[in-house]
Nucleic acid binder design. Structure first.
Length: 785
RNA sequence: UGCCCUAUAGCUCAAUUGGCAGAGCGCCGGAUUCUGGUUCCGGAGGUUCUAGGUUCGACUCCUAGUAGGGCAACCA
């Protein structure tokens, strides 16, 4: 037997995650960039700590894998830790079974949380103390309204809510009520603990969110100890803080929770405190990811369980035969970002094939057999042929013996009576090589009464034996199995679960169930070569020319050997045939040429008062309508502008610099009392206009002005800034740069005009930003064109 | 209707933070191959959502839009 012990599913995780030298790390996703920044700036001292925080209420799926890989890889990359924390604050949905499944699947993926296994339910005591502290600080209160009342007074997205009548209840009273809630004195729903924030907030989450509810339910870990349970919004940030998490990563829909997260942590913890960052969850073509929908599939018997190989659950994928390393690889390939996405399954399949290519030994198995009689092969004889388990390019050792007999099976699709062009397989009179054996020629086609082909009669060229030194070559090689020596096996051919890419996108009156692919599972009998007939579970094979297959461990438990098709091989022939039969729809009929937007009138949205103000600004200062409209609608900016414009004689330039340069550097609060004096600002604009400063230099001075409050002339003086506009002085730099990059000069002359930006950048760098870019550009163009 | 997030190649993501628009997958072609697999080489594919503006220079900054997603559980 070939050595493929490295196939064990608990194989070690990729160890290439260790601290790689910075220059070898190509592109960094935004979370890595944040962490880099935090480490550099010293916001985070010591190791980074992240966490994977599932609620144990269902089976983990590929979406969880994305989060698991993200968090654990980050911890490994930065030499920090990743905690596994179960967010088990809702006793009604949670179960130990799911905890076990989660832990098993994380381990399967190859990650280890070591001692860092935590449960929010272990923090109940601490969280309760924090709730009390919040009340004491007058930041929370016990509300005795009903659920309906709370909901009704929360307001809507467009109207603000109203305060609860209990909002100003004395602190002692809330404290007492909370204590009695904890004692179990009240029934479910009688009271809740609410944060005292702002019922008028535009963020619904901040409208006095509920922190604790009474729920006399038995918790799978704490039993009946607690009649009250904290909600996610309370438990999660505080659990993060308790554990010293530095970076708390979650999915996009939690972004509106972040202000509450910050509010709680800031009121209850000291500075080194966790920060939450959100990234998009994974969507995958042709499947669904929501727990509810997955549960429906299981409950309604649409699939055979959580671990059905068509399911996107990790247990399903494992049973299907997706190696953990491939799943991990896939999670790395998809990246991390904030845009909603739907990933092409082709990427998953690529990761699986690429992984299995070097891991799965090759054997022969005929899925849809048709009989071939080798007419010149002695009846009853069994010729043992030695066959390598691996193709040459893989380079692994190992072979097995394959028996050849007079009657063999070949794949029905490998014969065509009337073949199309470039069909390299069997047809009447044509030759093909039997893999690991001989070249045969098809002499005769036998049909049954119904006209169906029942048997092919072929003759062997005995000089063409594989490895026998024959130089004969034929175009096609096909797989085969001996009729008498082959073994019948069960094979399950899986296809995508849904017939549309996005099953969530349904027409009226339909549900995702209506999108199920009725042919997602085909169970067939196949014939496998004897060497592979008695395998044990957790075995992968490539059935040559068919795909990768995995011996189903569940069926094996039940005493059956069933091969799951993990994934097909790439099939460029099949693809080509398909496109012949159904030619691609000619170029998508151009998406109804969008009407180019008309330039909008910048004055359009203004009310009459703003409008007349804008007119006034235009006539008084000769501003563009855009700039006038901008200033007309903003009081702080307009005041600043008028003052600055008054001290100089270039209102248009002042407006430009204010709107495009100064304003973006300032927060709204800063704009109210600008850190830059209008007169100074006007001076700066003048310095730019008279070409003392380049735009770049002026921007630099402006930033300095904001931080120091100094006059621009002082800064310029101090730094000795002065724009170089003299052609002769700049020519030297230009020549130097062009001489340093002859290949790029050639590329430019070849038409890659964008390189002008590169040359500009180089010259600007060499001159410390003091060159007059207009002059430089002119010089460059003169030299290059 | 309010607030928040997002928009770059068919898909998923980059772009040294204002200076050459790239990668992987997918697709097409060629070479190699006893798997129509693998590997190697090459190619096509871009209105950087739109329109204006600032700038020597805009995927990046400003303005106004458009489209998609999220938020009104005592779920997480």
């Amino acid at each position: 037997m070939a050595d493929y012990s490295n196939l064990h599913p608990l194989s070690a995780p990729a160890d290439d995650a260790g601290a790689a030298p910075a220059e070898s790390r190509k592109s960094r996703h935004f979370i890595q960039q944040i962490i880099d920044e935090d480490l550099n700036s010293g916001r985070v001292k010591g190791d980074i700590v992240v966490r994977f925080p599932p609620e144990p209420n269902g089976y983990p799926h590929i979406g969880h894998a994305k989060a698991i890989v993200l968090n654990f890889s980050l911890a490994a990359e930065y030499g920090g830790r990743c905690h596994l924390r179960f967010d088990d604050t809702n006793p009604e949905t949670e179960d130990m079974e799911y905890v076990r499944a989660m832990k098993r699947d994380i381990h399967w993926l190859g990650f280890d949380w070591g001692d860092n296994e935590y449960y929010a339910s272990d923090y109940f005591e601490q969280l309760y103390e924090m709730a009390k502290r919040l009340i004491e600080k007058d930041l929370a209160y016990v509300d005795s309204q009903t659920g309906e009342e709370i909901r009704a007074t929360r307001g809507t997205v467009t109207t603000s809510g109203t305060n609860s009548p209990y909002r100003d209840r004395p602190i002692d009273e809330s404290l007492d009520l909370l204590r009695r809630m904890r004692e179990g004195e009240f029934d479910d729903g009688a009271h809740v603990l609410r944060a005292k924030i702002d019922m008028a907030s535009t963020n619904m989450l901040m409208r006095d969110p509920v922190l604790y509810r009474i729920k006399k339910a038995s918790h799978y870990r704490r039993g009946d100890e607690w009649p009250i349970y904290p909600l996610y919004d309370f438990a999660h940030p505080l659990s993060d803080a308790i554990e010293g998490i530095t970076h708390s990563l979650c999915t996009l829909e939690f972004d509106v929770h972040r202000p509450l997260y910050d509010w709680l942590v800031e009121h209850l913890f000291e500075v080194p405190r966790p920060h939450q960052y959100e990234s998009a969850r994974l969507n995958l073509d042709y499947t669904v990811m929501s727990k509810r929908k997955l549960l429906t599939l299981v409950k309604d018997g649409r699939v055979q369980g959580w671990d059905d190989p068509r399911m996107p659950t990790l247990s399903g994928m494992r049973r299907r035969g997706y190696p953990a390393s491939a799943v991990r690889r896939f999670c790395e390939l998809i990246g991390v970002a904030k845009a909603d996405n739907r990933v092409d399954v082709a990427l998953l399949e690529y990761a699986v094939r690429d992984d299995l290519n070097t891991k799965a030994p090759r054997v022969m198995c005929v899925l849809d057999p048709i009989k071939v009689v080798l007419t010149n092969f002695e009846d009853g004889k069994v010729e043992k042929l030695e066959a390598d388990y691996w193709p040459h390019d893989i380079g692994h050792e190992g072979s097995r013996s394959v028996p050849l007999t007079r009657e063999i099976w070949i794949e029905r699709s490998d014969f065509m009576e009337d073949p199309p062009k470039k069909f390299h397989r069997l047809s009447p009179g044509a030759e093909v090589r039997l893999r690991h054996a001989y070249i045969i020629r098809c002499d005769e086609v036998i049909k049954d009464a119904a006209g169906e082909i029942s048997e092919l009669r072929c003759s062997i060229d005995f000089d063409s034996r594989s490895g026998g030194g024959s130089s004969r070559r034929v175009k096609g090689t096909i797989h085969w199995v001996s009729v008498t020596e082959g073994v019948e096996v069960d094979v399950r051919l899986y296809d995508r679960l849904f017939s549309v890419a996005n099953p969530d996108d349904v027409q009226e009156g339909q549900t995702f169930i209506d999108q199920l692919n009725p042919e997602s599972l085909r169970e067939i009998k196949a014939i496998i070569e004897p060497a592979a007939a008695s395998e044990e579970p957790e075995t992968w094979y490539q059935f040559e020319r068919q795909g990768y297959f995995y011996l189903d461990p569940v069926a094996f438990e039940e005493g059956k050997r069933v091969w799951n098709r993990t994934v097909t091989l790439r099939d460029s022939w099949g693809r080509k045939q398909e496109s012949v039969e159904a030619p691609k729809p000619k170029k998508a009929p151009k998406p109804a040429q969008e009407v180019p937007a008309e330039p909008v009138d910048p004055m359009e949205g203004l009310d009459s008062e703003e409008h007349s103000m804008a007119i006034e600004l235009q006539t008084l200062y000769a501003l563009t309508p855009e700039d006038a409209a901008f200033l007309a609608t903003r009081d702080d900016e307009r005041v600043f502008f008028k003052e600055a414009a008054a001290t100089g004689d270039q209102p248009v330039a002042v407006a430009n610099w204010l709107i495009h340069e100064l304003r973006p550097l300032l927060s709204d609060e800063q704009m109210e009392t600008p850190p830059v004096k209008p007169g100074h600002f006007s001076d700066l604009v003048a310095l730019h206009s008279d070409k003392t400063l380049s735009s770049r230099m002026a921007r630099e001075v402006l930033e300095e002005m904001i931080t120091s409050g100094d006059a621009p002339n002082d800064i310029v003086e101090r730094k000795g800034m002065r724009q170089i506009s003299d052609e002769d002085a700049l020519l030297g730099f230009v020549d130097e740069v062009l001489a340093a990059f002859p290949d790029r000069v050639a590329a430019y002359k070849d038409g890659k005009k964008g390189l002008i930006g590169f040359f500009m950048g180089q010259v600007m760098q060499k001159t410390g930003g003091s060159a007059n870019p207009q002059v430089v550009r002119g010089l460059l163009q003169q030299k290059l064109d």
